[in-house]
């Protein structure tokens, strides 16, 4: 039996209590799912937190995992969102080693992808890229023609469109 591997994005709304992240992580690891990205931040109501979890693993069984996460005492809700019903964004910081003479070439790419330079020295710059994950990934592909020294991505954050709750 081989299941197709897919990426999934879950939004989990939780009570802001010690251990809640560990409990959620355990549900995934026990079932062999790899958490690829994880963003945790206080929600609109500070007693609660919002987690956005990017996963890869078989689609088969994911619904069951969503239910298992949902039944944890500290979890208010756990939902999988499809990309077309939700806004999904991420942010990346890329440090590029670049001398003054090639700086303009880098800035052209920065401009094309609507990124920003957030730090600039004689020999390096840090570029901030935001947007859909695909766009961020495309920017990173392009900028790799220069010497990328460090790369940090936040992972996806997600919000359901319109009146739908996240």
């Amino acid at each position: 039996m081989s299941f197709e591997q897919h990426t999934h994005t879950l939004s989990v709304y939780v009570a802001n209590r010690p251990g809640v992240l560990a409990r959620i992580a355990q549900v995934f690891s026990r079932r062999g799912y790899n958490i690829e990205s994880l963003v945790v931040s206080p929600a609109n109501d500070g007693d609660f937190s919002r987690m956005t979890i990017g996963l890869s693993g078989a689609s088969e069984g994911l619904e069951q995992i969503v239910r298992q996460v949902g039944k944890l005492v500290d979890v208010i809700s756990c939902m999988e969102h499809a990309d077309d019903t939700a806004v999904v964004r991420e942010l990346a910081l890329v440090k590029v080693r670049v001398e003054a003479e090639r700086r303009m070439e880098v800035l052209q790419i920065v401009e094309h992808f609507a990124c920003k330079t957030v730090d600039l020295t004689d020999t390096s710059m840090i570029i901030m890229s935001t947007g859909a994950s695909e766009k961020v990934a495309a920017f990173i592909r392009m900028i790799r023609s220069f010497e990328v020294v460090e790369l940090v991505r936040t992972g996806k954050v997600l919000m359901a469109r319109g009146d739908q709750p996240t």
């Binding site: 010690p18 251990g19 560990a22 409990r23 355990q26 026990r30 944890l72 005492v73 500290d74």
Partner: peptide, 14 residues
């Protein structure tokens, strides 16, 4: 103990 028992409890508190 909070961590050790996490997979085998319905819920736990420290």
């Amino acid at each position: 103990v909070f961590g050790l028992t996490m997979p085998v409890v319905k819920h736990s508190y420290l």
